[in-house]
Design a protein around this nucleic acid. Sequence first.
RNA 1: GCGGAUAUGGCGUAAUUGGUAGCCGCGCCAGACUUAGGAUCUGGUUCUUAACCGAGUGGGGGUUCGAGUCCCCCUAUCCGCACCA
Length: 936
Amino acid sequence: MDYTFREIEPKWQSYWREQGIYHVKNECEKPHYYVLDMFPYPSGAGLHVGHPLGYIASDIFARYKRLRGYNVLHPMGYDAYGLPAEQYAIQTGQHPAKTTEVNIARYREQLDKIGFSFDWDREVRTCDPHYYKWTQWTFIQLFHHYYDKALDKARPIAELVQKIECGEHSEGLSKPWASMSEEERQLYLMNYRLAYLADIPVNWCPQLGTVLANDEVVNGLSVRGGYPVERKLMRQWSLRITAYAQRLVDGLDSVDWTESLKEIQRNWIGRSEGAAVWFPVADSPSGQTFEIFTTRPDTIFGVTFMVLCPEHEMIEHIVSDSQRDEVMQYVTWAKNRSERERQAEVKKVSGVFTGAYAVNPLTQERIPIYVSDYVLSGYGTGAIMAVPAHDSRDFAFARHFGLPIRQVVAPSADEVSDPASWTESLDSKSGICVNSGFVTGMKVKDAMKAVIDRVAEMKIGFRTVNYRLRDAIFSRQRYWGEPFPIYYKNNIPYTIPESCLPLQLPDVSDFKPTATGEPPLGHAALWAWDEANCRVVQTSKIDNETVFPLELSTMPGFAGSSGYYLRYMDPRNDESYFSPQAVNYWQNVDLYVGGAEHGTGHLIYARFWNKFLYDIGLAVKEEPFQKLINQGMIQGRSNFVYRSKTDNNLFISKNIAGREERTVPIHVDINIVDNDVLDIEMFKAWRPEFAEARFELEDGKYVCGWEVEKMSKSMFNVQNPDDLVERYGADTLRLYEMFLGPVEQAKPWDTNGIEGVFRFLKKFWKLYRVEEDGCHLSQQPATKAEMKVLHQTIKKISEDIERFSFNTSVSSFMVCTNELTSAGCAAREVLEPLVVLMAPFAPHIAEELWHALGHEDSVCMASWPMFDEQFLVEDTFTYPVSFNGKMRFTIDLPATATQQDALALIQSMPEGQKWLNGAAPKKVIFVPKKIVNIVI
RNA sequence: GCGGAUAUGGCGUAAUUGGUAGCCGCGCCAGACUUAGGAUCUGGUUCUUAACCGAGUGGGGGUUCGAGUCCCCCUAUCCGCACCA
């Protein structure tokens, strides 16, 4: 019988489904293992071959772990809320709920064809009220918690109130707590809540009609759609992720991720140590001071001016009358500049003198205060001490405005020079302090410490740490997201009771965003909160006495994806996020597979979310994802035909002389090209304008050009997995995606080698001599050589899977099959274990062969074969013999041979004598089972 | 500018982790079976050479009996961050 994958694959897919083979229980004697894929956005384009790459790898691993006796949690779901889904809905003019539904169905159909072992009973969708109930619930918990710096964990806000009442906490209190109104108290607590409402400058994207988080903006443009983003002050919900900055840095040391991704996160969090110092404003009657942050306290003697960011609140208080107009003009100009403009003109220096002076607290020197937008309001205190000699930005500013530059650090004490001659600043943190008062002569590192100690002693500053990480803006002026479980009473936000969750997303007909920032939920005119009855009411009467307005913005895409891995543990629980039993059993994700592009988004938010849930006693591990594998991006491989410049109907094959000058390349659909050879008939039928095409062929073929580009519809290089499943079967697709190269590596998609993998599977199939009534194998014992091949393969495949090196596994299968084929092996004792080895990679063919071998149960229930060392040991070993490191000939020695044996044998051989030439070897290096090298 | 990674035949890649570089696959060449093949099977395929020899893992140096692998310098490509004081 032939290998009929078209019959086999659907047959076993429905068998697995009907038998519930992949259903996982939470209680089990077996050890647990949790393998997770990053769940997809169900976009309208469907899956392309890049998506399943990671899924196939994790599926192989999950199946392997099952065969190894683990109870494996391997779920899948959909990240259905958020901008991409909504943008697609707007483009197609349909309701997002509808398009999401359709897209999910399409994804599911595509996924099912590839034969994954997901437990679909645990599917979650972030847009499902049963799911987002817990997203909203977590938000409520965040709102009701603050970060206790002493305990270094989140605690209920009620505890903070208690502390305030006992007088243990008074930071920033303007008047006694007892005399504060409810509104004043709430406003004060807002400064502490982990989910808080504040007027903050945000990334506003008019085209998308929403605010975006920092990781959703790149180079001043939105990641989704590439629209310009501007800075705007808006009242927004934020998550106080910065409270966790240090723990987010520290936690990286305990997880098994690639160094590069950890580094991406460290950079994003951007921890820097330094000092905060207060600089008094000169001649200030009210004794004003302002705080600056510096990582170079050692250079404080080199400060020649100060700079405030345009948003700094101090500006209007200190600006001199003569400078007021100019300063205000600059501030207005700077504030109205778009992010993109600002970033594009980073090199251009701008700024203005305030007319005011500050006093260097260590030297009592008067130094001018400037305003410039090179100082950012969001970092540190939005004010800096400028040391132009040792900071390139200050240097550029000083040169532009002709401000003095004073050297205070030199590579060595005698390398002091006149900064007037410098072309750049001396930013290095190594060297000796010069002209620096009491730190003169100290090494930079020692001076940093000395200056901090001194300012601390003088009570004008302190050692501190700053982070680049900003709080995560959590409001989106969009429709397709989780509603906030928040209503407003006297403009003060209150959470709706947990028992009323989920707060369902209202169905509105007009879900489009507005350019002004009014959330589309405002279109749900009748959407308000009846406080007394704890329910959403449809009334236009918001009386602010019994009926209150609800928050109209929705949560961002990362809300739903931040805790989904925990929900999979217990996905149908309506009483809690997940049960303690479930989380105690599964703990956290053992292996997480997904793209590195989520390094500064989802992977940070999820870690934060998990740490918070850990603090409040829900999660049991501080880090959610123990091991992380980043699968490489699959790029497209475009094909080109070459059209004559003079004759639109003439196409010239790639390698014909002079083709380059005579033609222009045109993208051609990769589906009508096979191994870079164009299917001429399909090409003519592809588009009407090519119907009359004529060709200049080479060797009777039309050879296309190719290039690696992004996979995109417009380049006709999108490879759809369904087509390949149809043509070669899911098992071939699975093996081929793995065979392409290491999972972690980015690579262009290229079907040129898929035939080879397909041939291999057919060959593998033949090995089993399948007939209508099963396999016609002999019961004869396998030869020693055959057993050796088998056990080598078991060893290799096991090691490969543990190392996540699936491309080499496929090669090993090929070698094994080739050897068994040429040995004519028909021994059951060899072929049966081989089926189990194949099961994680090509589950359909393995299942079919397993049954053909006479088994009644599924191959998924088998156990992984163990290799037996006895088949691998050699009686003799062939040693390469080198002279001075140069390999010359080989000798066979018993496995137990020693250096003396080797040397004796070599000396007795004519070859050996030729090389030794009668002389005694200087040295003999003998590494058992490796090499004999003789130094002559 | 800062940080991270990568570099091996015509192509995708492999190398027991310092021990015969190029496994496996594609492509190509030759052959077998075929009316036929874009089916199947067999053999060959780093370069140079008729062959032996020789050269060879981006370039240059170093450590070592021995380097694709370790160390230093350089180049190229990819990715991340980027006025973060």
